[in-house]
Amino acid sequence: MIQKKICMIGAFAVGKTSLVERFVTSLFSEKYHTTIGVKIDKKLIHVRDCDMSMILWDLYGEDEFQKIRASYLRGAAGYLLVADGTRAETLTKAVALQKFTEETLGKTPFALLINKCDLVNEREIDRNDLETCRQNGWRVIETSAKTGEAIEDAFLTLAADMLECDANTQ
């Protein structure tokens, strides 16, 4: 069994905790819980003939008062950037966080999750921006913690990317 540390990174209230909750326990709650510090969960998955224990570090959402600590990112084998599809500024924040994370970790597999995709009418993030991200080599996945859409896929894709990255390094 291989273990991997994965960080959930994003602005506050984008749904990082809900995504982890949905992925780990298949549950969703409308109630909002602010993450203070870090919350750690675990999910066992099987990907590419490999058993993997994903240690999910759900970091508190970054805002103007609280910056993400580099120490929490250290040792992460991959990370999920999470943005809220109904708040355009969270994508900007995600881009900034990606830059920060890459500076801290180096080139590391990651994916950009545009969460709350079920709220179609409230969507603010421009699809062109996402396309730009894709053109930059980012893996962009639209998810909904509420409906569960594409969540499993997002985590498994990241896991596969991490394994591929390991294979390349060796």
Binding site: Q3, K5, I40, D41, K42
Partner: peptide, 28 residues
Amino acid sequence: KTGLLLQHVNDGVVTIEHEDLVSSMLTA
């Protein structure tokens, strides 16, 4: 560096679940 659990042993009297989470949390 990663906070991942390399190895864990207990005394056989008191056991805990998800020792890997404990490991990560201690690191955090």
